[in-house]
Amino acid sequence: MTFTLSDTLPESKPALYETLVAQARALIEHETDTVANAANFSSLVFNSLDGLNWAGFYFFDGAELVVGPFQGKPACVRIALGKGVCGTAALSRQTQVVADVHAFPGHIACDSASQSEIVVPLVAADGALIGVWDVDSPRLARFDEADAAGMEALCRTFVEFGWRGIAR
């Protein structure tokens, strides 16, 4: 199967995310390797949305979140549940939209350029925690509720079509 990333993306956020969901599904649904799917998913989002400096996965290993495929500068490798934005999203199982990461209690600064962040928990159909999808921006208040809805749709697509488990 050949995958082509569109050179022109819609300008409205709902239409943009709808396009990205379709592209993500086409990119990952026939690949059986989770790491390959996560790597391509990260690249798709990072290269399609403006104003990002990091986009990637932290997978739950049964005890903590461990960095997975991503785009951006090197990242923190392990994050405890309940710590920082990622750990909070994982523990609460709720998307975290943070307009100013410096105002978030216990924020973990992997890249000092990050100013805002959105983290979506990844949860399997049986309710098991898979991990989180984390996206950072060097701009304050880069993410809003439309981004939350769009990222959640993208993450549902990843869990349904791209997640095959991680061999440990």
Rank of each mutant, 00 (worst) to 15 (best):
N47F: 08
C86R: 07
R168W: 06
I28F: 00
T32Y: 05
A90I: 08
K13M: 01
M151I: 01
A99L: 12
A99W: 08
G72R: 00
L9D: 07
S6W: 07
Q23F: 00
V66C: 12
R164C: 01
N40Q: 05
L9S: 07
V135L: 15
C86V: 06
A146K: 03
L129D: 07
V66R: 14
L91N: 10
T34S: 06
R156N: 14
I108K: 07
C110N: 10
R25N: 13
L129N: 15
S92D: 13
G72L: 02
T19F: 02
A89F: 01
V98L: 09
D147G: 00
I130V: 12
L5E: 09
L44E: 04
E117D: 12
S137G: 14
L27Q: 00
P74E: 04
D100Q: 11
E31M: 00
L27H: 04
I166D: 10
G72H: 03
V135P: 07
T88I: 07
A148N: 04
V85M: 06
S137E: 08
S114R: 11
F3Y: 09
F46A: 09
E31I: 05
F161Q: 08
A153D: 14
R25H: 15
G165E: 02
L122N: 12
G106C: 07
K13A: 03
D134K: 15
R156E: 14
V45D: 02
F70Q: 11
V21K: 00
I79N: 10
D100S: 02
F70Y: 13
A146H: 08
L16F: 00
V21M: 00
Q94H: 15
F161H: 15
V67H: 10
P121V: 01
D144P: 12
F161E: 05
P105T: 06
D7E: 13
R78L: 05
L140S: 09
S43D: 09
T8N: 13
G56M: 11
Q96D: 10
G84V: 02
V77Q: 11
F46T: 03
K83T: 13
T157I: 10
V120S: 13
S116G: 10
V45I: 15
K73N: 07
V159W: 09
G82R: 13
T19H: 03
V123Y: 15
L27W: 04
A153M: 07
L129T: 15
V67L: 15
A124S: 04
V77N: 10
G165F: 01
M151E: 02
Q115F: 09
Q94M: 01
D111Q: 08
K83C: 13
G162V: 03
T2M: 05
M1V: 13
A167S: 15
D100L: 04
W163Q: 14
F70G: 08
G51L: 04
F3C: 08
D136W: 08
P10W: 05
R25F: 10
A75M: 12
A113N: 11
A148M: 02
C86N: 08
S137Y: 11
V77E: 10
P105A: 12
E145P: 04
Q115M: 12
G56H: 13
S48G: 04
A36F: 05
A109K: 13
